[in-house]
Amino acid sequence: MTNEQDRYRPTGASGRSANIGSGRVIEEQIIPLVEESLAIERRTVETGTVRVRTVLQTREEVARADIYRQAVSIEHVPINREISEVPEPWEDGEVLVIPVVEEVLVVEKRLMLREEIRVTRARQVDKVEQPVALRSMEAVVERQSRAGAKV
């Protein structure tokens, strides 16, 4: 390249010359282009506030339950029979029989069954209803926006 050709070449550009025949020289120039880059920044912007409050609600319900209890009746049955040994208590169906013995002084000593105590158990079911206060809590959220801010 000649100095005359360097004069037309931009700074930082590179060029080539080509001879196309008839004595004409075509100059090819490469021109650097500008490149843009992107930078992203974040910032926090308050758009509004919220207020959360709780509300306590009470409702009445009836609690239902079965309550079991036993009623006991006691019956004394006189026997007055002589026995040779002390009998153990036993159950006759739903009845618990407890023998009561006594030693009686005679010319000789003998065991006399004086009575039996009979204990009968009867199971009863009573239905009970009792009002009960049950509470539940709800959260209420109220959004408050700043003037001019989009919510």
Rank of each mutant, 00 (worst) to 15 (best):
V55Y: 01
R114P: 04
E102A: 15
E82R: 12
T11C: 01
E46W: 00
T2R: 01
E35M: 05
T58Q: 13
E85Q: 12
V34C: 00
Q130I: 14
V106T: 13
Q124C: 11
I30G: 00
N80I: 00
Q70I: 14
Q70C: 10
V106I: 12
V132Y: 11
V34D: 11
L33Y: 06
G15P: 01
R146A: 13
V140S: 03
N80P: 01
Y8N: 00
E36R: 10
Q5K: 05
G93A: 06
E94Q: 13
R51C: 03
Q5N: 04
D66L: 11
V55A: 10
I30T: 10
V101I: 07
V125E: 05
V77Y: 01
D6G: 14
V125G: 08
S145T: 02
E36N: 13
A71R: 05
P32M: 05
I79S: 05
P87N: 00
S37K: 15
I83H: 03
A139T: 08
I30K: 08
D6V: 03
R81P: 00
K109T: 09
R43S: 13
I31S: 02
R118K: 12
E75D: 13
S17L: 13
G48Y: 12
S17G: 06
R110I: 15
A65Y: 07
M112F: 13
S22V: 06
V25C: 12
T47S: 10
V55T: 09
V77K: 14
R81H: 06
E116M: 02
R123V: 15
I79C: 06
R114A: 04
V45R: 01
E129F: 14
V119M: 11
